[in-house]
Design a protein around this nucleic acid. Structure first.
Length: 419
RNA sequence: GUGAGUGUAGCUCAGUUGGCAGAGCACCGGAUUGUGGCUCCGGUGGUCGAGGGUUCAAAUCCCUUCACUCACCCCA
């Protein structure tokens, strides 16, 4: 049987791989300017970590987790799972290191693969990459605003046309009242709700708000913004004002809810119309109770994650199209030229040229054809005659002219840029 | 988990009422003894997704199954 890749897992070749790298490099540059510190954490964690953060009834825990079965003798180590998201692991590491007590204000970024067992579709994979930011010990609105401003810088750097939406879900004070009102509304309209919403009513009532089956009905549901307590209202107003000052084109969407249970106050989502139905390319928000819920001190937290593959889907191809072609391709004619050619290649590379030494087992014609295909600017041809005369035939493949160049002058002749 | 669409060469796809599996691109070689692109000529390459059925005969009709894609759900 042919060995194929697993469903929902992707190979990335050529331009596809370059697009992902461009997204990650742009995100790193963004993180650098915001003085964030990298954090690298394990891919495998205890299942309990996700049960306690995402909620045991969440889809992520109930059916999307990649559980890793252990041999019987290791059963004492507890059940483990590949991470479905980055936030719980970062918090666990933060608490593990004792930072919640010794030095609580921390600004992190991470980059890596996440795993969720879902039915794949455009923009949704079983293994995907997220670039995430998590900030601890900052409860102020300026912090929330800066995250959104950071994302705006990121998407501008990539030339992405996106939609920013924000909402506030309230905190431990006011959210229960909102949730209760939503439940009451759901029960009152039970017969009008779609089948999915009947499930949501039990499992995750906030999700009633973004029902697509009957968007009109969902509009009549209670809105979190109307239930905010005074501090939450003040906080949200400040976030709105600050991102307004920065000129981020952001809309308030009272029906914007997040998938995970732990969000409080500010939530936001950045969507692109270019990537299919799974249109959220960045999403995040505040999760003030989560550090404590995972066994740490009562420390505020806020963050977001960029979906690397989704962002790459939204990218214009000309931004990552040109793969790096070699400056020079070396054509060695005959076995006797190989020693000379390999040394020539080494020297040019030492001087910063991008050089590919072509197979000496094939003919000149085939190698020049190959050099052309690779997009090499120059072909460097060496055979018996050249070695005897101490020269290299430098052929400019774009101009079509060839000149014999003294060995010592080859690097200069191939110079795209000065040394 | 649910629904729809699509499976023919490495890629993109044709293949008529069932009648010898094709084209373009790519790859390899030649036209040109050690010179690319353009052109011309030739060549390699197929379990027609898989299994079963109907038929003298199936890529084509029927059944089953698998894979991929998109959407629901969920979400980055």
């Amino acid at each position: 049987m042919k060995l194929t890749r697993l469903r929902g897992f992707q190979d990335h070749l050529g331009a596809d791989a370059r697009a992902l790298s461009l997204v990650e490099e742009t995100a790193r540059a963004m993180a650098y300017r915001h003085a964030l510190n990298e954090i690298r954490i394990p891919t495998l964690e205890r299942i309990e970590l996700y049960e306690r953060s995402s909620g045991e009834t969440s889809d992520v825990v109930q059916k999307q987790l990649y559980r890793v079965p252990r041999a019987a003798e290791a059963a004492g180590e507890g059940d483990q799972a590949l991470r479905p998201e980055g936030t719980p692991g970062v918090i666990r590491a933060y608490i593990d290191a004792g930072l919640d007590r010794s030095d609580p204000e921390q600004r992190f970024f991470y980059s890596g693969s996440m795993f969720r067992y879902e039915r794949p579709q455009k923009g949704r994979l079983r293994q995907f990459n997220q670039f995430g930011v998590e900030i601890f010990g900052r409860a102020d609105a300026a912090c929330d605003a800066e995250l959104i401003i950071m994302i705006d810088e990121f998407r501008r750097a990539l030339g992405l046309d996106v939609r920013f939406e924000v909402n506030s879900l309230g905190d431990g004070n006011c959210r229960p009242a909102f949730r209760a009102a939503l439940l009451e509304w759901g029960r009152a309209h039970y017969s009008e709700l779609c089948e999915d919403c009947h499930q949501r009513l039990e499992r995750n009532p906030l999700r009633l708000l973004d029902c697509k089956t009957d968007a009109e009905l969902a509009k009549s549901a209670p809105r979190s913004l109307d239930y905010l307590c005074a501090p939450c209202r003040t906080h949200f107003a400040a976030v709105e004002r600050l991102i307004g000052i920065a000129g981020v084109p952001c809309e308030v969407n009272p029906r914007l809810v997040r998938g995970l249970d732990y969000y409080t106050r500010t939530t936001f989502e950045v969507t692109s119309s270019a990537v299919g139905a799974q249109s959220a390319i960045v999403a995040g928000g505040r999760y003030d109770g989560l550090v404590e819920a995972l066994g740490g001190a009562a420390i505020a937290g806020t963050g977001f994650a960029i979906g690397v593959e989704r962002t790459a889907l939204a990218l214009a191809p000309e931004r990552y199209g040109a793969g790096g072609a070699p400056d020079a391709a070396i054509v060695a004619i005959g076995a006797g030229a190989v020693d000379f050619a390999i040394e020539l290649a080494r020297e040019l590379r030492a001087r910063g040229r991008r050089v590919e030494l072509l197979s000496p087992e094939r003919g000149v014609k085939a190698l020049l054809k190959r050099a052309d295909k690779l997009g090499a600017r120059y072909a460097l041809i060496v055979g018996e005659d050249e070695i005897r005369n101490g020269v290299v035939q430098v052929k400019d493949l774009r101009a079509g002219v060839q000149t014999a160049v003294a060995r010592a002058a080859v690097a200069a002749a191939v110079a795209g840029q000065p040394d």
